Simulated assay, not measured.
Amino acid sequence: MDLPGRWQALPHGYDGPVTATTRGRIDKRQAILDAAFTVFTRRGYAAAGMQEIADEAGVAKPTLYNHLGDKETVFRRAMEAAADTVRAENTAIVERLRAPGEDLRAALEDVAHRMLLVCCGERAGALRRLTLAQAGEFPELVVAVHERTAIRLSDALADRLARLSLDGTLRRCEPALAAEQLLALLTGPMEARSRLGTRDVPPDQTRAIARAAVTTFLAAYGPRAADTGNPGRPGHVPSTP
């Protein structure tokens, strides 16, 4: 289960009780991580300084060191926290498929479009740029960010698709593969039109990408016309009496 943003900032390896004192420390830690990510986004890793991060967070520099340690650790934890936020936003969107309603196509298009908006958002874009820029110095961070974002999202989507397949809303399929293919249908065109994230994609094009991806996805995984009883609307699933 995804937790609210402030609970995602538990100190690395912490498994103790969450008291009022601990909660305050967690909130301060999250504020520091948010501030650090802002500074790293604005300045880049090399140019960012601990004093600037402390100023952005509104804390004393010693407080920054007490909570997170050195600059390298601050960077790692800030990137992980940003990745967790992006993941939480996307997995919350995927939950829409828990009860898609009568019109499966509309539900999938809504989910696809909203996921694209998150992926094109300021936080996700900055996360990607920083990860790639520092890949040489922090190669393991590339793996960590990928696991916390793309892999977790794919797993969450696969879980939803598995349930839709089991109840007959979708054809029988391999959920992990279906999720991977739907995400590829979304990210491929978005990468091309955004020039690898270097320019904005107009809203009408974002919606068009989502619509085209769902059309292709349903051609492979949608219920057969004979099963839906409505050959004129592939992807429309009648309500259960």
Rank of each mutant, 00 (worst) to 15 (best):
A57T: 02
A57M: 06
A57H: 05
G58W: 10
A60R: 10
P62K: 05
P62I: 10
T63M: 04
L64T: 07
N66T: 09
L68Q: 08
V74M: 14
E80I: 09
R87L: 09
E89A: 15
T91K: 09
A92W: 10
I93A: 05
E95K: 14
L97E: 02
R98A: 11
A99H: 14
A99R: 14
A99N: 13
D103L: 01
A112Q: 00
R114E: 12
R114W: 07
M115T: 04
M115C: 09
M115F: 04
L116D: 00
C120T: 08
C120L: 11
C120Y: 06
R123A: 07
R123F: 05
G125E: 07
A126D: 07
R129N: 09
R129T: 14
L132W: 07
Q134G: 08
A135V: 13
V142R: 01
V143I: 14
V145I: 12
H146E: 12
E147F: 05
R148N: 10
T149E: 05
A150T: 12
R152L: 11
S154N: 12
A156R: 00
L161M: 11
A162I: 03
R163P: 01
S165D: 11
L166D: 15
L166S: 14
D167I: 08
G168Y: 03
R171F: 02
E174M: 05
E174D: 05
P175W: 01
L177S: 06
A178D: 01
Q181P: 03
Q181F: 06
Q181T: 09
